[in-house]
């Protein structure tokens, strides 16, 4: 069942996954005769690449489009426009690979550990399901499933024949991770995969994710609203605001020298662990606006402390500033922003 795609083809320098100009707008039903009149601009013109063996962290507040990006990368939903290339092969194009082939190599783990497991299947049946569907003989699929259980820290003799409701949240999330690995994917997208877990259990699962990545040579896209966890796990970090990337770069650059005003606000909104240095002032006011009618020009301008009139008329695009790329007119020479060179 391991296809030719499981092995590295383009070499280490070729991105594992390249997504170009992805766009996804969701029409809102309503209006006259149920015709869609307005759209949610969930993801707009998003370009990213995932390097082989890296962990790309994705952060942003709820509704900014993180889960939509995840579902697009796995092609659980079809982009309105844009292209994707998996290790050199265009996806869903005449000379490329099919969406089904893509889904064998890209797997996903969601936040809700319970909803994503079939309550009527035992754990070992759950894990063996996809490999069997892909033609692996029954006994072999079960054997592999038991191995995987051990790999995610669940004693096979104890857990193989249990049902999902007989597990704790942390144990169920381990099963979800094992299931994502059952087809030996190259890329695993973790969408808020540890967010529902208690801290002591979250630490267990994070350690396990690090181990599994080494052991199976995996690449991760790690989506979370928890900036500390993203910093812990990621090599590069992508910051989203209202369907757009506002900043992307190495984890040291993003956390050490954040440039975009939103990234800076997000980082300083983190509660402190030091009672002597409590937060005295919120870095920005208000809530994120609605993605149905995002502000013109720079989408962050309604909350940005540096917004000027030029920000309403010109939409900033991502520009390389050395260690990271930033979408803000302050970093665009000649943009007309008073802080621009």
């Amino acid at each position: 069942m391991d296809s030719v795609l499981s092995v590295d083809r383009g070499g280490p320098a070729q991105p594992l996954l390249l997504a170009k100009n992805l766009r996804k707008h969701f029409p809102i039903p309503g209006g006259l005769l149920g015709r869609a009149t307005r759209v949610v601009r969930a993801v707009d013109d998003l370009t990213l690449s995932v390097a082989k063996g890296e962990t790309l962290g994705v952060v942003g507040e709820s509704g900014c489009g993180k889960s939509t990006v995840a579902r697009l990368l796995m092609r659980l939903i079809k982009p309105d426009r844009g292209t994707m290339i998996l290790d050199g092969d265009p996806v869903d194009e005449p000379h490329g690979i099919t969406v089904n082939e893509l889904r064998r190599h890209v797997q996903m783990v969601f936040q809700d550990s319970y909803a994503s497991l079939n309550p009527r299947l035992t754990i070992v049946e759950t894990l063996a399901f996809a490999p069997k569907a892909h033609g692996l003989p029954h006994a072999e699929a079960r054997g592999r499933s038991r191995d995987l259980l051990a790999k995610v820290g669940l004693e096979p003799d104890t857990f193989a024949d249990r049902y999902p409701h007989e597990l704790s949240g942390g144990q169920r999330q381990r099963v979800n991770i094992a299931r994502a690995l059952a087809l030996r994917p190259r890329l695993v997208i973790l969408d808020e995969a540890v967010s529902a877990l208690d801290k002591s259990v979250e630490a267990q699962v994070l350690n396990m994710l690090v181990d599994l990545k080494d052991e199976f040579g995996l690449t991760y896209v790690f989506i979370s609203h928890d900036l500390n966890v993203v910093q812990y796990l990621s090599d590069r970090v992508l910051v989203m605001y209202l369907g757009k990337i506002v900043e992307i770069g190495d984890v040291e650059a993003i956390y050490g020298k954040p440039q975009h005003p939103y990234t800076r606000a997000l980082l300083s909104a983190r509660p402190t662990m030091d009672p002597r240095r409590r937060t005295q002032e919120a870095p920005i006011q208000g809530d994120p606006p609605n993605p149905i009618d995002p502000p013109s020009g720079c989408r962050f301008r309604t909350r940005c402390p540096f917004a000027e009139s030029v920000c309403a008329g010109t939409e900033p695009v991502l520009a390389d500033t050395g260690k990271q790329s930033v979408a803000c007119l302050m970093y665009v020479p000649g943009s007309g922003h008073s802080k621009a060179a």
Binding site: A203, Q204, V210, D226, N228, Q231, Y232
Partner: peptide
């Protein structure tokens, strides 16, 4: 102590987390 040690915060990158084994 376990709760504090297993809570991820800045500056822990690359270090193995001290998880509390088991569940409540």
């Amino acid at each position: 102590r376990g709760l504090l040690a297993s809570t991820v915060h800045g500056g822990m990158r690359g270090r193995r987390l001290e998880a509390i084994p088991g569940a409540p």
